[in-house]
Design a protein around this nucleic acid. Structure first.
Lengths: 146, 146
DNA sequence: TATTGTTATACTCTATAACTATA
DNA sequence: TATAGTTATAGAGTATAACAATA
């Protein structure tokens, strides 16, 4: 053969690194996530924001940014998009008029429920090769790296 | 308190999903990787390409794209950059004049060795909370998802 | 001075479609 | 027709610096 084909390629240098596997698995999850969300127009970052507001009504943008480990500057577009779509509402906090208290609208709550069901199925599909115990072990190991 | 502070925020919706943890850990690895490579001007994708050429001299661009699960179109810039920096060499394959056989230059080999040492230290730092056995378990679980 | 949100901008990785040249 | 590489372009996530309003 003149060139190597897939599966014959030596990836031993990369195989030793956790970062390589995390990246590959993460990219696969990204692609599957996008498929699973088809029709909702909800992306990963948007779901992260929605789910945090669902569990923490009244949270502000900076709180979400800290929890999701993204920059405040990148929250602006996400929040604006969710508000334009009437999935969240912003209310000025009287005691701190710089901040907005964020809550879900009824449509936002319904969207979160729909997304949770979709993501549950997407995860079950991607993790089909692991037992329930293994899935728990995996999450536990990843949590200790965060 | 008027707003929730970091650590007081409920992330339970996200915590149940492997994809969320993979993403967070992956982002942390990305940031650390960039730090670890400071001064080399080698990014993740570039190291992936270099390491595959190191282990598979003569491989072509399509073979690398398949192995790294990236698109051929995105290889063009990476390969051009590495060639401009004299880290790799391209040779037309006589039996298939569409393809280029890729090999490392001496500078490329030295760069791979330097990067391997840097990445090894970066991984040891990020994985300090895991035992050797746990690291192996983690890689094993991630490999079964790829 | 510090915090909250904002604007502007840039970088990295990934993705698709259409093209050239070879096979 | 199919393959190998290329071009152009776009989307998503993340990053920094500087700013206004508020505390």
């Amino acid at each position: 053969m003149t060139t190597k084909k897939r599966g014959q390629i030596d990836t031993s240098f990369l195989d030793a690194f956790v970062g390589y596997h995390v990246r590959r698995v993460g990219n696969g999850f990204d692609r599957s996530f996008t498929e699973a969300m088809a029709g909702t127009e909800i992306r990963q970052a948007l779901f992260g924001v929605l789910s945090l507001i669902a569990a923490n009504p009244g949270i502000n943008q900076g709180g979400i940014a800290d929890a999701l480990e993204i920059k405040r500057a990148n929250m602006v577009g996400l929040i604006a998009e969710l508000e334009e779509r009437d999935l969240i509402a912003r209310a000025v906090v009287p005691s701190n008029r710089r901040a907005f208290a964020l809550t879900l609208t009824a449509a936002g709550s319904a969207m979160v429920a729909d997304c949770l069901a979709r993501i549950g199925r997407h995860e079950d599909r991607l993790l089909a090769n692991l037992s329930s115990a293994e899935r728990i072990i995996l999450i536990g190991l990843l949590r200790r790296l965060a």
